[in-house]
Nucleic acid binder design. Structure first.
Length: 457
RNA sequence: GUGGUUGUAGCUCAGCUGGUUAGAGCGCUGGUUUGUGGUGCCGGAAGUCGCGGGUUCGAAUCCCGUCUUCCACCCCA
C-alpha cells in the first residue's frame, strides 16, 4: 500500500473491544440517569453559530469548530473585507453554523424552544459527541463524548444533593473508588472578590486562584497583581490561601472571613445545606471536598460548581464536571429558569478505568460458539443449528467458507471464541457433535440438546 | 494560541559521526501426515524511510517548511 489514509488530528477510531467498553460505561451512566428520573433527548451535531458563540467566554469561542458556508458565499463578501484578512470580521460572514461545543448550551436552547411542551422541572440526560478545536493532549481530544444530566426549572438545592449522589452511584457501579468531587460556589468567590474590594475583577481573580495547587501561592499572587488586583486586597486573601482542614473546618474559616458579604454567606449556606443532607444519604466510594480554588471556566455558572478528580495517583484532568446556572435560558429569551447539571467525560473515565484495569472481562465477550464449515452439505445442517442456538440467545457464528480447519480454528482463536463445534459427516450421521473448548483444548461428543444446556449455563 | 517531542514494513522499534541491493521481533501468508487453534521447524510477501523543498558526487541520516504523534502551558471532559 502506497499511502495510508488517515483521520484528522484529535479524532480516533474505536476497535470492537473499545466500543464494547465505551458502551459499558455509557450503559452504566444511562441506567443511573434513568433511575434518577432523567429522560433522554438528542440535539443536532451542529447549531447556528449565534447559539454557541459568546457562551463559553473568549477562549471557548476560539475552540468552537466553525462550519464553512456552502454555495457561492464568497461572492457576497466585499473585496475590502477579504483583503483585510481579519478573521474576526470575516468568520461570521462565511460561517453561519458551528459544531456543538458542549451539551449544556444546546440544552438551554432546546428548553426555550420547547418551553410550552415541557412540564417543569425538566430532567433530561443526553449522551452525544462534542467537538473542540483544542490541541490534543493526554485525555484531551477534538471529538469526545459527554454524558450529561441536567435539571431545569427548580431552584432547590436538593438537586445538587441528588447530582452528587449520581456521581457516586455511577462511579460505584463502574468499580471506580476514591474519586474526589471538588465542590465550590460561585457566590463564595463573588463574596471573596467583594470582600477584597475587587467585585469587578471576579473573573481575573478566580482564573488566578484556580491555579493555586498547581503553581503555588507566590505565583498566584504574582498573577493576581499582574491582573490588576491590589496588594492590600492580597493581604486580605491570606486566610483563603492558607485554608485547610476538613470540609466543616474550611466552612467555618470561610464563614469568619466572609461575615460581611451577604452573597458569600449565601454561598456558604448552600454548601452547608448540601453537606447536611448528604449526611443522611452518605456517599459510598467518593470523597467530597470543599475546594475554594475551584473556579471552572464556563462562565454561565452562578451557584455551586463541581469538578471530579480521578483517584490519587492517576494523572488526568477532571473526569466530570458541572454546576448551577441561574439564567442560561435567559440568553435565549426565557428568564427565571434555573438549571443545574453534571457531565461525565466518557473518554477520560475510559482511560482511568483502563489504567486501573477495572473493565470486567464480561464486557469484551463476543461470539460464544463457532460452527466449523466442512462443506455445502454440512453447512446446510449447521445453518439450521445456528439459528436454533441464536433463538436460545447464544451468540453463534458459522464460518462462511469451507476453508481449511486450521484456518477456521485460528479464526476462533483470534476472536476469542470460547467454543467451536465440529459437525462433519460422522457427527451428523450419529447426531453427536464434537464440542471443543478452546480455552482448555478438550473435546467432547454431545447431542444438540446436551450442547444447548451446556452452553446456556 | 505558546513551548517541546515524534514520524523507518500491518504493529513495536534498530539503523553510529551522510556512502554499496534499508534490518529485527511480532503479525500476515504458505508448507510441516489435507478433521483442529494457541507452544515447534522451514519458506514467502510486504517499506516512494510522514509529505514538500534545499545542501551534497551521494541523505532514512544535515538544513528549511508542512502535516501528524505525544507531552506541558492556556483552557477544559
Amino acid at each position: 500500500m502506497a499511502q495510508l489514509p488517515s483521520i484528522p488530528k484529535g479524532t480516533r477510531d474505536f476497535t470492537p473491544i473499545e466500543v464494547y467498553r465505551r458502551e459499558y460505561i455509557i450503559n452504566t451512566a444511562k441506567k443511573h440517569f434513568q433511575r434518577y428520573g432523567f429522560m433522554p433527548i438528542e440535539t443536532p451535531s451542529f447549531e447556528n453559530s449565534d447559539t454557541l458563540l459568546g457562551k463559553y467566554g473568549e477562549e471557548g469561542d476560539r475552540l468552537i469548530f466553525k462550519i464553512l458556508n456552502n454555495g457561492e458565499f464568497l461572492k457576497k463578501i466585499d473585496d475590502t473585507i477579504l483583503s483585510n484578512k481579519d478573521e474576526q470580521q470575516l468568520t461570521p460572514l462565511i460561517s453561519e453554523r458551528a459544531l456543538r461545543y458542549d451539551l449544556t448550551v444546546p440544552f438551554a436552547r432546546y428548553v426555550v424552544q420547547h418551553q410550552n411542551d415541557i412540564a417543569f422541572p425538566f430532567k433530561r440526560y443526553q449522551i452525544q459527541n462534542v467537538w473542540r478545536a483544542d490541541r490534543p493532549q493526554k485525555g484531551r481530544f477534538r471529538e469526545f463524548t459527554q454524558c450529561d444530566a441536567d435539571v431545569v426549572g427548580s431552584d432547590s438545592l436538593l438537586q445538587e444533593v441528588e447530582l452528587i449522589k449520581l456521581f457516586d452511584d455511577v462511579y460505584t457501579d463502574l468499580g471506580l473508588k476514591g474519586c474526589t468531587i471538588k465542590i465550590n460556589n460561585r457566590k463564595i468567590l463573588a463574596g471573596i472578590a467583594q470582600m477584597i474590594g475587587a467585585p469587578d475583577q471576579l473573573i481575573d481573580f478566580t482564573v488566578a486562584l484556580d491555579k493555586l495547587d498547581k503553581i503555588g501561592v507566590d505565583k498566584v499572587k504574582e498573577e493576581m497583581i499582574a491582573r490588576g488586583i491590589s496588594t492590600q486586597a492580597l493581604e486580605k486573601l491570606a486566610p483563603v490561601f492558607s485554608l485547610s482542614g476538613t470540609f466543616d473546618e474550611k466552612i467555618e474559616q470561610m464563614k469568619a472571613l466572609l461575615h460581611d458579604t451577604s452573597i458569600g454567606l449565601e454561598g456558604i449556606q448552600e454548601l452547608e445545606f448540601i453537606k447536611e443532607h448528604l449526611a443522611n444519604v452518605p456517599l459510598k466510594n467518593t470523597n467530597l471536598d470543599l475546594d475554594i480554588t475551584l473556579a471552572r471556566g464556563l462562565n454561565y455558572y452562578t451557584g455551586c460548581i463541581f469538578e471530579v478528580a480521578p483517584p490519587e495517583g492517576i494523572s488526568m484532568g477532571s473526569i466530570s464536571g458541572g454546576g448551577r446556572y441561574d439564567n442560561l435560558t435567559g440568553i435565549f429569551g426565557l428568564s427565571d429558569v434555573s438549571g443545574v447539571g453534571i457531565s461525565f467525560g466518557l473518554d477520560r473515565i475510559y482511560l482511568v478505568l483502563e489504567e486501573l484495569q477495572l473493565f470486567p472481562d464480561s464486557v469484551d465477550a463476543g461470539v460464544q460458539v463457532l460452527l466449523i464449515n466442512f462443506g455445502a452439505v454440512e453447512a446446510r445442517y449447521c445453518m439450521e443449528l445456528m439459528f436454533r442456538f441464536r433463538e436460545s440467545g447464544i451468540k453463534t457464528e458459522l464460518y462462511p467458507d469451507p476453508a481449511k480447519i486450521k484456518k477456521q480454528m485460528t479464526y476462533a482463536d483470534k476472536n476469542n471464541i470460547p467454543y467451536v463445534i465440529l459437525a462433519g459427516e460422522n457427527e451428523i450421521a450419529t447426531g453427536k457433535l464434537t464440542l471443543k473448548n478452546m480455552r482448555s483444548g478438550t473435546q467432547q461428543s454431545l447431542t444438540v440438546d446436551e450442547l444447548l444446556t451446556l452452553l446456556l449455563q
